[in-house]
Design a protein around this nucleic acid. Structure first.
Lengths: 221, 221
DNA sequence: GATAAAGTGTAACAATTGTTACACTTTAAG
DNA sequence: CTTAAAGTGTAACAATTGTTACACTTTATC
């Protein structure tokens, strides 16, 4: 168990022995789950920290018609929904079920809070985890706020410019970039063609050359 | 100062005297700022916690052309960018400047981490603050993921259904709802009219009646 | 009750993207 | 080198939303 936990971001920087000592001071359970068992339903309160010790869980979004859409696999030593353990709306965002047999380390929220005070590294690690989630979501929102493919493409390219080097390596084909943007591949190709026609950029298979940086930037005004 | 901090969510549940004791144990500065002073630029590392004691700050998004768009006012006793203090990409998401003269409580990150270990209430409060941010952002992403106005409206209405009561009070006019969705008011009205024509709902000034719940739900398949 | 303001409904047209299809080009495999 | 597979470019048409304008309805004010 402590070897697995040693690989968890929550205990980054700690040795197995140190993790052992910490966990021993903290009320916890090791809970087994069996394949297809439902561990939590969307909308339920998250009142305990859960770290996967073995096996696999899956998170499924339930739409308003009752259909399930699998959105994420969770393996050891991942922590389940860390950003929902605290906060006024700390409800499971998805249905959580088991894809296989396995084990969970379970620590109730108040006990987990105490665990965080026992070692500043664990505290900082947990703060890093949930802050990282928030920052990822923040960046995603920036991207989703762009309404046109042209804006998405401009943002994508401008974010990859380095040291005023106008040649941007791209190791995705057009289909993959389109999927990244959530748009249709031919539609993306159309916009690329438009920007090429306007002399703003030159798109090749593994690289893009920005020809008119000002024009590209002003797409995002 | 401690009266102001007593109103900060970070110190919720603590008396002024307790806050006084905690802060005294923690290296900190009280920094003054003057109107129009730039306190931080977008992209700079967030290495200290900053809590406004007096005055007002504003966060401005800088687009790629260098234009500033004011997005947020911050007053006492708010904390500046709490979700960016930890995490690998903990960079200021905006330019931060002063709208007036005022004062900030400044605590460097490592010292702030230690402060969090001194009182489990403060720790839980901070975890609540940044977890709440993540949860808010997560909900926003759900909404932004809807591509059509019909989907946005279905989600908006289904989220307001309570106790199988098909009458939903709406205390926004169409213009306000359209702004909430980030769409054009006539376009929203068009979709409302479409759904009314289909017998799915009846839209009145202060309320909406859901006439065909199944149809509304299946918009979100 | 009359008038003004605010809110709503709708039409015409423009802009953007999605979908489907297929031709062409490039890359990979044998 | 040849063939097959993958990637790209483009067209035609459909779907959705935005913009502008204005008529109509409802609400607020005097």
């Amino acid at each position: 168990m402590f070897e697995i936990l040693g690989r968890s971001p929550l205990f980054n920087g700690l040795e197995s022995q140190q993790i052992n000592t910490l966990i021993a001071k903290c009320p916890h359970q090791v809970k087994s789950f069996t394949k297809n068992e439902v561990l939590a339903y969307s909308g339920e309160v998250v009142d305990k920290a859960m770290i996967i010790l073995s096996g696999r869980l899956q998170g499924e979004m339930v739409d308003f018609s009752g259909n399930n859409l699998k959105i994420e696999d969770l393996n050891a030593p991942q922590m389940v929904a860390p950003a929902f353990l605290y906060g006024a709306q700390g409800l499971f965002p998805v249905n959580l079920s088991a894809s296989s047999d396995g084990k969970l380390l379970v620590i109730y929220r108040n006990d987990f809070t105490k665990l965080l005070t026992l070692d500043p590294r664990v505290l900082a690690n947990f703060l890093n985890i949930i802050s990282g989630k928030a920052q990822f979501l923040s960046r995603k929102i920036t991207f989703l706020s762009f309404k046109t493919i042209k804006e998405k493409l401009a943002y994508f390219l401008l974010n990859r410019l380095k040291n005023n080097n106008m040649i941007i390596p791209i190791n995705h084909n057009q289909k993959e970039v389109a999927e990244l943007f959530g748009v249709a591949r031919p539609s993306l190709a159309r916009i690329i063609g438009d920007l090429e026609s306007q002399g703003i950029l030159k798109w090749e298979r593994n690289q893009v050359t920005v020809l008119d940086l000002n024009a590209l930037q002003s797409i995002l005004k």
